[in-house]
């Protein structure tokens, strides 16, 4: 399983043609306490760079953009009950949604863990 990172602080786990998407530890740290996550509907299509989810912290709402184009196959229902999972386990249990990968070339140019760490260190 390969994990990719975007400069919008999302991570993508690729397993076959299915991608699991979440936000990184760096992102949750910046957002602070998360109180609500609005997830895309299963069956809806998201486009790379388009709005896919909204994260509400105590203070503000932040958009989460789809890192790739695809159809939403599953949304993490655990976040409805416990949105704080995004704070406590951002890169595991706090995943957002799973989408089909329609165009693998969209993954080109994304960062691996090492490159992403270097990217964050410079921020």
């Amino acid at each position: 399983m390969a994990r990719y990172f975007t400069d919008e602080h999302e991570w993508i786990d690729l397993e076959g043609d299915l991608a699991t998407v979440g936000i990184t530890d760096y992102a949750q740290e910046q957002l602070g306490d998360i109180v609500f996550v609005e997830l895309p509907e299963v069956g809806s299509n998201v486009e790379k760079g388009g709005e896919a989810a909204v994260v509400e912290s105590v203070k503000a709402a932040s958009d989460v953009y789809a890192p790739i184009t695809g159809e939403v196959m599953e949304a993490n229902s655990a976040l409805e009950e416990d949105p704080a999972l995004v704070n406590t386990s951002p890169e595991e249990e706090g995943w957002f949604f799973r989408i089909t990968v329609s165009d693998k070339s969209e993954l080109e140019g994304l960062m691996d863990a090492k490159a992403y760490k270097a990217f964050c260190d410079e921020l």
Partner: peptide, 8 residues
């Protein structure tokens, strides 16, 4: 508000 989604 009902639910958990805040209004700003």
């Amino acid at each position: 508000l009902e639910g958990r989604m805040p209004a700003r």
